[in-house]
Design a binder for these strands. Structure first.
Lengths: 229, 229
DNA sequence: TAGTGGTCTAGACCACTAT
DNA sequence: TAGTGGTCTAGACCACTAG
């Protein structure tokens, strides 16, 4: 009670009220809410302003307030498993290597730890619908993901989400190269065939969660992105 | 005059006032603005709310309002010229072709026009610091950029900005391929050398502005991205 | 004409920060 | 203690939409 501000009460009331409603559904009018909660109109507007800012509601002058159309695609920093699921494909992975290694200088800097700090190095061959798609080498800071190396998850990003470390943004660098011998063998392409190299540094807020390098077959995969801004 | 709302007047006054100020600089207090403009405090708050929402200002209860720290990298749908500038390189372009073509079905659908609508097809060899970097083929809807084909700009994205069509979001697909004969010749690499293909559909709000395919030399260029979400 | 959101007023009390 | 932003009141007039 003492802690609940009126505009927050109203905001959450309206949020619950319209949750699950189809876009275009009428929301309560400002004056309705004034009557219902016995507050000033500015207070109601403050509550609705927040929901409009979040994209939950839409105002139409002279007509009313309505449930907004769903946001345009959440861009999203997606993991491989999610990316494949979005395309209706089944992602699999064969772990080639999972070990603890002390971090060198470059990785320490990228992961924001002191050189020598224990890292988890995880190397996987990833497949979609049974065919090799990419080779992925991921480095994680061990103390940020305790126990991960002992019980490797099916989907790294799912596991990170459960730890409250879902990547919220990432820096990505993409480049085209020729497949090296080992890459070629594992990806089942000729040596020198074009491959797409994807380096990522994924962060959850201020915390660097993952540094990875993924090498995709050029002929069977494309990286799709939705940029904003 | 009759068209200028008070909160807009105040918002733009403050925006100009703090433009170029260092992050952390004190902005006028709400009561200062009340006095200066002779308005109610709610009106001032409405103006400042907008700037806070845009990330221009930051409020600190009990202390004041301040110029916000720069947004974490504007993610940015960047054009080639801007991308190069950010790396401290000089971008140049050699126009290989600029012509009007009727749109086929695929392009018409991507650009949201009726098949046959006149398009501008613009093909450029792009260079950074004098060396060929990529081959870029851009399609634009002629009636959305009248006069562009007659006076080709140095930077497409600059030109679009002046027309109020600065891309605000884009769909991008990246893949690795082997260079075809003509690509190889123009980019000065061997036939079959790995190249990075970047397909983009750039939009300004609801309007599709550009559809392009860019082929980068694999060895001299990487596409960098910052994803959010 | 009745209802809606958009704008605006002229105050008020609170918790917090800095001096 | 003085100043700041955060919250809130109880009204008002406007332009617009719909029946």
């Amino acid at each position: 009670m003492s802690r609940s501000l009126k505009h927050v009460t109203i905001r959450e009331y309206v949020r619950d009220l319209v949750a699950g409603s189809a876009p275009g559904t009428v929301a309560p009018s400002e004056r309705d809410l004034v009557d219902r909660f016995g507050v000033a109109r500015m207070t109601v507007r403050q509550a609705l302003d927040a929901l409009v800012g979040e994209g939950v509601l839409e105002r139409v002058p002279g007509r009313g307030t309505f449930v907004a159309a769903p946001q345009r695609t959440p861009t999203g920093v997606l993991g491989f498993t999610e990316e494949m699921a979005r395309r209706g494909m089944v992602a699999e992975a064969r772990t080639l290597l999972a070990e603890r290694v002390p971090s060198g200088e470059g990785l320490a800097s990228a992961l924001q730890v002191t050189p020598g700090a224990p890292l988890v190095r995880w190397r996987r061959l990833r497949m979609a619908d049974g065919r090799p798609v990419c080779l992925c080498e991921t480095y994680l800071v061990e103390r940020r993901v305790p126990g991960l190396a002992e019980a490797l998850p099916d989907s790294l990003y799912d596991d990170l989400a459960r730890r409250g470390l879902r990547p919220t943004w990432s820096e990505d660098v993409l480049t085209a190269c020729a497949a090296a011998a080992e890459e070629a063998r594992l990806l089942e392409v000729a040596v020198g065939a074009p491959v797409l190299r994807h380096d990522r540094r994924a962060c959850s807020g201020e915390i660097v969660v993952e540094v990875s390098r993924t090498v995709y077959r050029g002929d069977h995969h494309a990286v799709s992105l939705l940029l904003r801004g």
